[in-house]
Amino acid sequence: MNTYYFDHAATTPMRPEVMKAMLEVMSGPGSNASSMHAYGRAAKQHLNRSRDRIAAALGCKPSELLFTSGGTESDNAALIGAARAQRKRGKSHIITSAGEHHAVLHACEWLRKEEGFTLTVLPVDGSGRTSAASVQSAMTAETGLVSIMHGNNELGTLQPIEEIGAIVKAGGALFHVDAVQTLGWIGYRLNEIPVDLMSFSAHKINGPQGVGALYIANGTLFEAVQHGGSQERKRRAGTENIAGIAGFAEAVDICVNERETKQLFMDELRKRWIELLQEHAGVPIRINGSEQHRLPHIVNVSFIGVDTETMLMNLDMEGIAASSGSACTSGSLERSHVLRAMELPEEQLQSAVRFSFGLGNTLEELENAAQKIGTIVRRIRNNY
Rank of each mutant, 00 (worst) to 15 (best):
K88E: 14
E109G: 04
G90Y: 03
V124A: 01
A103D: 15
W110D: 13
L119D: 04
I95Q: 07
L105N: 00
R87A: 14
E100A: 15
K113P: 00
G81T: 11
L79K: 08
E109M: 12
S97N: 13
H101V: 12
A83S: 14
T96I: 00
V121P: 01
G90N: 03
L105D: 04
W110H: 14
A82D: 02
A82N: 11
K88W: 00
Q86C: 05
R87C: 05
H101F: 10
I95Y: 07
I80A: 12
G116S: 07
G126Y: 04
L111P: 05
A82G: 07
L111E: 02
V104S: 00
S92Q: 07
H102C: 08
L111S: 08
L111Y: 05
T118M: 04
V124M: 00
T120D: 14
E100F: 11
I80Y: 11
V121A: 01
R89K: 13
L111D: 02
V104F: 01
C108K: 03
A78H: 00
V104R: 00
K91Q: 14
R84C: 08
R112I: 01
A85F: 12
K91L: 13
A103F: 09
I80W: 07
R112K: 14
R89S: 12
A82R: 02
G126R: 12
C108D: 05
G81D: 09
H106M: 12
A82I: 01
G81N: 11
G81E: 04
F117V: 03
S97L: 03
V124W: 05
A85N: 11
G90T: 00
L111C: 06
E100P: 11
L79I: 15
F117L: 06
A82V: 09
E100M: 14
E100K: 09
T120V: 07
G116P: 10
H102P: 11
K91M: 14
G126S: 09
D125A: 03
V104C: 03
K113H: 07
A98P: 01
S92V: 01
G81K: 12
A103K: 04
I80F: 13
W110G: 11
D125M: 02
E100D: 13
L122N: 01
R84V: 05
T120I: 03
T120Y: 01
L111K: 06
S92C: 03
L105V: 00
G116L: 07
S97F: 05
R89I: 02
H106V: 10
T120G: 00
A82P: 02
E100H: 12
Q86Y: 06
P123V: 05
R112C: 06
A85I: 13
P123M: 07
A83L: 04
G90H: 06
Q86M: 15
K113W: 04
H101N: 13
C108E: 06
H106N: 15
K113D: 15
H106Q: 14
K91S: 11
A83W: 06
E115P: 10
G116V: 08
I94H: 10
E114T: 07
R84Y: 07
H101L: 05
E109T: 13
L122W: 02
K113T: 12
A85K: 14
T118V: 06
E100G: 13
A83Q: 05
I80R: 14
T120E: 09
F117Y: 11
L111V: 09
L111M: 15
